[in-house]
């Protein structure tokens, strides 16, 4: 038995969620009393993983894995899991990992819980807490099968420093033929994605029109934040759909979520699972004030530029 943590990387660089995933996997393996293996695709320098308790690294180097493709990746992860006799496989909640997990379940005949937010409260039966009902509830859920797959929510467990010796095992695998052809990838360059951000600045209908989005963008730039919006804002085409947060849009699990001119409808709140929420709204009765840690009642057109100036001064 062992724990396998699948880390994600792009162009040889680990994704931001890696330290948290490895921290979780390390603590999980200790709790169960088995070895930890961290699976890495095409990253030259894995030394940073030693800081978070990665005792073993399973290192795959293969140019065929430069681009994510679900079946090819899930096949390699399955082979890795079989090689080390994995009893537990830990993945993140990124778009790619959520794509992989159900395929892995079938290949490994495993049970899978997504949106897990804690270490198991019991090893037998294996019981973890996960969010459900679009963040309106949590459940204690068990996995009954021999192999267990855990999808960890971003920013739920946190990063735990735990320096360790690391053994690197090279893992050679033959890749299966691709069934799906990737024609092109468009990444918004230079922009931080909602999934990778620590802070998200989000705007609603209170901003009146797309021409005022410089308010949101400037504040986001100062904070190194991603930008987001409410659903009507994307429905009206002020912002792209990919920025829409909520039950029918993207989930956010950042450290700080700043909502500007958003009323706080229940479907919007269902997408927010951040540790701290700050709201700027000119209506003191806006429901968002009931779901926030900090609030400023005021006109966004006055408050946001002032706040931005002060933050710039604070940062420098």
């Amino acid at each position: 038995m062992s724990v396998l943590v699948y880390t994600e990387s792009s162009k040889g660089i680990f994704k931001k969620n890696t330290p948290e995933l490895v921290s979780y996997g390390s603590e999980l393996s200790k709790k169960i009393g088995v070895e930890l293996f961290v699976l890495v695709f095409n990253v030259e320098d894995c030394s940073m993983l030693s800081q978070y308790g990665a005792t073993n690294i399973l290192k795959v180097d293969n140019d065929g894995l430069n681009l994510f493709e679900n079946k090819t990746y899930s096949n390699v992860i399955t082979k890795a899991a079989n090689k080390i006799n994995a009893s537990h496989v830990v993945l993140s909640s990124s778009a790619d990992s959520k794509y992989l997990a159900p395929s892995l379940c079938v290949e490994l005949d495993a049970g899978y819980l997504s949106n897990v937010v804690e270490l198991p409260s019991s090893i037998s039966p294996f019981t973890v807490k996960r969010t459900c009902y679009s963040n309106k509830a949590l459940s204690d859920s068990t996995i009954e099968s021999n192999i267990k797959i855990i999808g960890l929510s971003n920013n739920s467990y946190g990063v735990v420093e735990n320096k360790t010796e690391t053994k690197i095992h090279d893992f050679d695998v033959a890749l299966i033929d691709k069934q799906i052809e990737i024609k092109s990838i468009e990444k918004a360059s230079g922009k931080i994605s909602i999934a990778d951000a620590d802070v998200v600045v989000s705007g609603g209908r209170g901003l009146k029109g797309p021409e005022n989005w410089n308010l949101i963008e400037d504040l986001a730039e100062t904070l190194g934040a991603a930008t987001a919006c409410s659903k009507p804002v994307s429905d009206m085409g002020w912002r792209p759909h990919s920025e829409h947060v909520g039950q029918t849009g993207k989930p956010v699990a950042t450290n700080l979520y700043i909502a500007v001119g958003i009323s706080g409808a229940i479907q919007h709140l269902a997408g927010i699972n951040s540790s701290k929420v700050k709201v700027i709204n000119n209506d003191p009765e806006a429901p968002f004030f009931k779901a926030a840690d900090y609030g400023v009642v005021g006109d966004a057109f006055e408050v946001v530029p002032k706040l931005n100036e002060k933050l710039k001064a604070f940062k420098s």
């Binding site: 963040n135 459940s139 204690d140 068990t142 009954e144 779901a291 840690d293 609030g295 009642v297 408050v303």
Partner: peptide
């Protein structure tokens, strides 16, 4: 069944919002 949901919880209530006057950012 591979998984079971055995018990449900509501998320902890957030603390009361701290309102900051707009002239004291």
């Amino acid at each position: 069944l591979k998984t079971k949901s055995v018990k449900y919880y509501k998320p902890a209530e957030r603390n009361e919002v701290k309102l900051i006057p707009s002239d004291n950012l």
